[in-house]
Structures are given as C-alpha cells and as structure tokens.
C-alpha cells in the first residue's frame, strides 16, 4: 500500500508516540467581526469561534483551532470530511467566507507523557512550559525543518502535531530519533 494503513507507534519511558487515525479537517476563513459568520459556525459545531491567538475550542461534535485572525481549523473525529465541509458550507452559504477540506493534506502524530515536552523541545523553539502553553493551546511553528501545528490536546500532557502528508516519513523519523534516549532499556533504537 502506498499509504501505509498500519499506525505508527512507539512507547518509551514516560513517552508515547503514535499516529492518530485520519480525521475530518476543514480550513475555515471568514470575518470574526461578522456576527452572522460566528453564529453560523456555532450552529454547525456547537462551539464558540476562538478569537484569541493560540486558543482552541473542543466539543462533542468538533474542535476548532485558531490559525490566524481570520483562519481556523475545524476538526471532527465523528464526521466525514466532506460532510463537515458540506454542513459548514450550507450554514455559511450567504456569507463571504471560505470552507476548504484539508483532511487529506495532513497527518497527526500524538506525543504524550512527561517526556513529551523534552522530545518536542529538541526541534521546536516554542516555550512549551505549562504556564506559557496551557491545555488547549495551539500554535503553528517549525518542528525541526517541518512546518507543523502543535496542539496541547490532553493534560497528561498529550501534544498533537499536525504535519503535511508529504512529510509523514520525515516527521516520524525525526520523532523516533528525538525519542530514542527515552527508549525502554530493552528496546533497540
């Protein structure tokens, strides 16, 4: 298979790396000052549109991550990408905005455990201290030489790293190399 369906996984000392199942992702563009836009998004997602940089909103149907002052990423584990895009498009039909399906464009890796921050700090210049990068925070940045979206989705902590599909192998090889010092003793790196 070209797109290897087997999920990648690595378990080390206080560290888990893994590839997340594909999820629906839509890039949403629009004017946050337009109340009808914000309302329509809420109707579909049952979430308030996060307006502050680096914030996200998470609910049962979807989560919304801030990407820019007029850019958001809407993700859902429970809906198909085309359905999510279609329902947003329908709700936003009369509003100047853009709804673009980007679910196939990305791979999401999860980096979890108390060594997760150290692994990411090897390639990421963000300050990931829990006060500076609290739960739910997201940021677009570079991880080593790959542009990524980092999202602290779980308190354990668990970071989700969104990376372009074409960089799937590079990002995994980098994460594995960065994690090797936390390999369980019996494990061969």
């Amino acid at each position: 298979m070209g797109d290897d369906a087997s999920m990648r996984r690595f378990i080390g000392r206080d560290l888990v790396l893994g590839e997340c199942p594909a999820r629906a992702c839509v890039e949403l563009r629009g004017d946050p000052d337009d109340a009808s836009f914000v309302r329509a998004v809420r109707t579909v997602t049952d979430l308030p549109l996060p307006l502050d940089p680096g914030r996200s909103a998470a609910g049962l149907l979807a989560s919304i991550l801030w990407l820019g002052p007029d850019r958001w990423l809407v993700c859902s584990d429970t809906q198909a990408g085309s359905d999510l895009a279609a329902s947003l498009r329908a709700a936003l039909a009369a509003i100047a905005c853009a709804v673009v399906d980007v679910g196939a464009a990305r791979i999401v890796y999860a980096v979890g455990g108390s060594n997760a921050r150290a692994v990411l700090a090897k390639g990421c210049s963000l300050d990931l201290h829990e006060r500076k990068f609290p739960l739910g925070h997201c940021a677009q940045t570079l991880l080593a030489k790959a542009p990524v979206l980092v999202h602290l989705s779980g308190a354990e902590p668990t970071f989700e790293i969104h990376v372009a599909r074409s960089l799937r192998d590079y990002a995994w090889a980098w994460l594995r190399a960065a994690a090797s010092e936390y390999a369980a003793e019996a494990d061969d790196a």
């Binding site: 080593a144 030489k145 790959a146 074409s166 960089l167 590079y170 090889a173 980098w174």
Partner: peptide, 12 residues
C-alpha cells in the same frame, strides 16, 4: 540530529 535521512526533509 540533522544528519543522514534527517538532513533535509524529504517530501513524498
């Protein structure tokens, strides 16, 4: 770590 296969990202 930027050596060998990680020297520069390869896009496939």
């Amino acid at each position: 770590m930027d050596a060998g296969e990680l020297f520069d990202p390869v896009r496939r």
